[in-house]
């Protein structure tokens, strides 16, 4: 029989869609605005600048329109007695699992943008540099509770974490 990974149980907060959209615009808008105003000001190079604007703006618009909703469908998380399980990505998808016994630290991560939407991320680190799991876009209070719960559970499970 063929097997596949099931999506983790919980979705992230709906506000994360807006957070990702703002984040995407923060990437896309500055170059678009700069190129647009340059095109308006410098008449001789207008056609070239508008061409460059198009090259930046079209993929940018597609990214800002599609990415947030798609991410919301993919980004999910789950904590069981034995492990933390999380899915992330929008084109390139990732599913990560870390056993409770190997967890070293659990932190909240909050960028300025996440704070505006009162969102918070949870970062679960293990002894592997690449093995840490980040769950972004959780409600602030939920994230704080999750960190406490994970810290307590990781300490309760024996293991030297390496």
């Amino acid at each position: 029989m063929e097997w596949e990974l099931r999506p983790p149980r919980h979705s992230v907060d709906r506000r994360a869609i807006r957070w990702w959209a703002v984040q995407a615009l923060a990437w896309v808008l500055p170059p678009v605005l700069v190129l647009g105003s340059l095109a308006a000001l410098i008449a001789p190079a207008r056609s070239w600048l508008l061409g460059a604007l198009l090259i930046v703006a079209l993929p940018g618009a597609v990214y800002a329109l599609l990415m947030p909703a798609r991410r919301y469908r993919v980004h999910r998380w789950e904590v069981t007695e034995e492990a933390v399980y999380a899915a992330s990505g929008w084109l390139w998808l990732k599913w990560r699992v870390a056993p409770m016994s190997r967890i070293q630290t659990v932190d909240t991560v909050r960028g300025p943008l996440q704070q505006i939407f009162s969102l918070s991320g949870v970062k679960v680190t293990t002894a592997s540099a690449a093995g840490s799991i980040k769950i972004h876009g959780l409600d602030r209070h939920l994230a704080a509770a999750l960190v406490e719960q994970l810290t307590a559970r990781a300490q309760a499970v024996p293991g030297d974490a390496t």
Partner: peptide, 8 residues
Amino acid sequence: IGWTVSRS
């Protein structure tokens, strides 16, 4: 100490 499954 953990698995990552990735799919492009």
